[in-house]
């Protein structure tokens, strides 16, 4: 089982790295969308400093969401997913492997890029550590919860739009605690509790989300 999980994990990583464009697209979206905000709300450093934490968090949420279709859709289209569902390995474990690969190729790069964008948006330096740590703890939950949404819409009409509708409401708690942590850090308040809550959400998602997503994947082949 562990071998099957590792095989799926490595396969997904190889697919992303060999294509390259998938990885770059999410990051490019993050960068371009972030550069729209100074033009939209005005370039004054004070305004940007206020909205910076929220903008970075919302955009990383959207970048993760936009890359979700890569999680199952292409494997569903070419039949690989059906073969995986037929193996003896529980689908939940394969989903966990796929979601981990998705996090390594989306959440992790976004976390690394986030401080650069936050500085472009003039986020006070006190908030940078809270932002990066928060994203590091929060993005695994986003990949895992997103896997549920991506699995539910397999075979549906206008699947990618539907994913947004299903997944974004479930992302709201992560967003709230992530932004609160940065704001608390900027204001000089303790931000450790928010980190603990983000970590708790991710920890709870690790067993629960693959279970639901695995059931959803299986239901696509009946």
């Amino acid at each position: 089982m562990i071998r099957a999980m590792r095989a799926v994990f490595m396969r997904d990583l190889r697919l992303v790295f060999r294509q390259g464009a998938d990885l770059a697209l999410a990051l490019a979206f993050f960068l371009i969308a972030a550069s729209l905000f100074p033009l939209g709300v005005g370039p004054s450093p004070e305004t940007l400093a206020i909205v910076a934490s929220g903008v970075v968090w919302v955009l990383s949420l959207l970048s993760v969401m936009l890359s979700l279709d890569r999680l199952f859709q292409s494997d569903y289209d070419d039949g690989a997913l059906e073969l995986m569902a037929m193996t003896a390995t529980p689908m939940a474990l394969l989903v966990l492997a796929k979601a981990s690969a998705h996090w390594v190729t989306t959440g992790l790069p976004l976390t690394l890029l986030a401080p650069v964008i936050a500085m472009m948006l003039n986020l006070p330096a006190d908030g940078l550590l809270a932002l990066v740590l928060g994203l590091l703890l929060g993005t695994p939950a986003m990949s895992l919860i997103g896997a549920i949404g991506a699995a539910l819409v397999l075979g549906a009409r206008r699947a990618s739009l539907l994913t947004a509708l299903l997944v974004l409401p479930l992302y709201i708690p992560v967003l709230i605690f992530g932004v609160s942590a940065v704001d608390a850090a900027v204001a000089g308040l303790p931000w450790r509790p928010y980190m603990l809550i983000l970590a708790a959400i991710s920890m709870a998602s690790i067993p629960l989300a693959p279970w639901a997503a695995g059931a959803a994947v299986r239901s696509a082949f009946q």
């Binding site: 549920i148 539910l152 819409v153 075979g155 549906a156 009409r157 206008r158 539907l162 299903l166 639901a212 059931a215 959803a216 239901s219 696509a220 009946q222």
Partner: peptide, 17 residues
Amino acid sequence: LANAFDEPGRASKPAAI
């Protein structure tokens, strides 16, 4: 989601999940 599938009955499990 319950109305997103063309095949009747196909939506029941995803919607329930």
